[in-house]
């Protein structure tokens, strides 16, 4: 994957799917500066692992695997070093935007916060679910059975809904 064409293609795919990297970075890394490091590491690993990519598989599934693996490792390193900071009041950059205060924005912020409270693997599970991946794809990315995926997702959803309803009371 070292020819100019391959690099152009890699760049095109990364930019086309940059939303995946951004959302994973936001979910595993509340600190903005640290998030830059994580995104760099993800892009580097994607580039490095490019030679192992099997064209028979979906590019995004492969990308999710790499990005989530790097993000979880990065998160764990931060946890070990005691560098993790608590989730800020405004966890994502979009919350900093101009006309703040609308309800959907607040709900987005809360959903991010609730997701961040989940354990690393559960967080990956719900991210993939919200990204509308099928149970089969999620099971494949995580390396667990479809039944396990369905049961766990259902539990996490209940937990999230409970958190939202508690706030609405």
């Amino acid at each position: 994957m070292d020819t100019l064409t391959a690099r152009e293609e890699f760049l095109r795919l990364i930019l086309h799917n940059k939303g995946i990297i951004i959302k994973i970075c936001n979910s595993y890394c509340p600190d903005k500066n640290d998030r830059d490091d994580l995104a760099q590491e993800i892009i580097y690993q994607l580039w490095k692992s490019g030679k192992n990519f099997d064209a028979g598989y979906s590019f995004t599934t492969w990308m999710y695997r790499i990005a989530l693996n790097v993000a979880i490792s990065h998160y764990r390193k931060g946890k070990q070093a005691g560098q993790l900071i608590s989730f800020p009041e405004k966890p994502i950059d979009i919350a900093d935007k101009r006309d703040g205060g609308d309800e959907m924005e607040e709900q987005t912020r809360l959903l991010q916060q609730f997701i961040h409270e989940l354990k690393e693997l559960d967080r990956a599970l719900i991210l993939l679910y919200l990204e509308s991946k099928t149970y089969r794809e999620i099971a494949d990315i995580l390396g667990i059975t479809e039944t396990n995926t369905a049961t766990r997702i259902s539990r996490i959803k209940d937990k999230l809904k409970q958190r939202f309803s508690m706030l609405n009371k």
Binding site: D2, R7, F10, L11, I14, L15, K18, G19, I21, I22, K23, C25, N26, R35, D36, A39, Q40, I43, Y44, W47, I92, D93, I94, K97, M104, E105, Q107, T108, L111, Q112, L130, E131, S132, K157, L160, K161
Partner: peptide
């Protein structure tokens, strides 16, 4: 839940959250 996530998605599209483009471009050089 999906609706909230979609809203988040479209906001990300609107705003340049990370300098991904420049990093990816940087990666362009060996």
């Amino acid at each position: 839940l999906h609706k909230i996530w979609k809203a988040y998605d479209s906001k990300l599209e609107e705003i340049k959250v990370l300098n991904l483009q420049s990093w990816a471009l940087n990666l362009h050089s060996l």
